[in-house]
């Protein structure tokens, strides 16, 4: 296994609770990169934003026999040191305010994402 400590990965998630099967993998990959000691950020924009609304991610459960929901994954990602960021402008699409967001998420504007993309070693789009 290569030593990838400190590499920067930016994951861009544009899919939300309306397409459950597109929600788990980007978070899982982010957790994998964090376990490999990379500096990982997930940027939620467009429909991806709605999974960060309090109470929404708990409803997404791909395997009904498991107690794991999308909220479980988001919490595990935060525990693993993954940074979760949301697009300010996209929050308006879902009538979301800062108070609607789950804990641990920071709001950034569009110019920030350009900086982050330029500074990342790799960007993954979903």
């Amino acid at each position: 296994m290569e030593d990838l400590e400190g590499k920067k990965i930016l994951v861009i998630q544009t899919h939300g609770v309306d397409t459950p099967t597109r929600t788990y993998s980007p978070i899982f990959y982010a957790m994998a990169a964090a376990a490999m000691e990379m500096d990982v950020m997930v940027w939620f924009t467009m429909n991806g934003t709605n999974q960060l609304k309090k109470g929404e991610a708990e409803k997404v459960q791909l395997d009904p026999t498991s107690d794991v929901t999308l909220k479980t994954l988001l919490d595990q990602a935060l525990d693993a040191g993954v940074k979760l960021r949301v697009c300010q402008q996209s929050m308006d699409l879902w009538n979301m305010t800062k108070d609607d967001l789950i804990d641990g998420v920071e709001i950034l504007g569009a110019t920030s994402i350009i900086d982050l993309a330029l500074n990342a070693d790799h960007v993954m789009y979903f």
Partner: peptide, 12 residues
């Protein structure tokens, strides 16, 4: 030391 993954979890 490395990573371990299952179908529901991945971590160091």
């Amino acid at each position: 030391l490395g990573t371990v993954e299952s179908s529901k979890w991945v971590g160091p």
